[in-house]
């Protein structure tokens, strides 16, 4: 499945991700990490924290709907792989981000923006294994 190169749209989308991360830090003093938010919603120890993370989770899912209301369209979600790969990948991602302490948003954007060495190591590591995995699945296993 070939996809178009969209440098300006991706740059603009990235800038909005960055803006959201800066606003969350300025107002709430929190890292905007999808893993931390989902993980927090799955813990029920501190209800103030739970409500904040639930609001963040709901807002994220509303993003494409607000975009649809504003522009009349929403970018595609295209799945070039099997349902089995989606489920397997989901479980593997869940275990990995749990031990790694974050994902693309928490380490890749927020951690790197505050020059955390842990986040730099995490980012380089998950990028390298993602490149290697796609090489293996597409060009060695031929999935």
């Amino acid at each position: 499945m070939i996809t178009d190169f969209t440098p300006w749209q991706s740059l603009g989308g990235g800038a909005l991700i960055g803006l959201a991360a800066v606003l969350l830090m300025a107002l709430h003093g929190r890292i905007l990490g999808a893993t931390g938010i989902l993980g927090g919603v799955l813990r029920f120890a501190d209800m103030d924290d739970w409500r904040l993370k639930a609001a963040l989770l709901v807002g994220m899912a509303m993003g494409p709907l607000v975009l649809l209301a504003l522009t009349g369209q929403t970018p595609a979600v295209e799945i070039p792989i099997s349902t089995l790969a989606i489920v397997l990948g989901g479980v593997v991602v869940g275990v990995g981000v749990s031990y790694g302490g974050g994902c693309t948003s928490g380490h890749g954007v927020c951690g790197n923006a505050r020059f955390s060495r842990r986040s730099l190591v995490a980012t380089v590591t998950f990028m390298v294994t993602a490149f290697a995995t796609v090489y293996l699945t597409r060009h060695v296993m031929g999935v």
Partner: peptide
Amino acid sequence: GSATFGIGWGIAGFC
């Protein structure tokens, strides 16, 4: 953990 995350990301395409 991060290496595992990258493998899953490469399998599913979603982070």
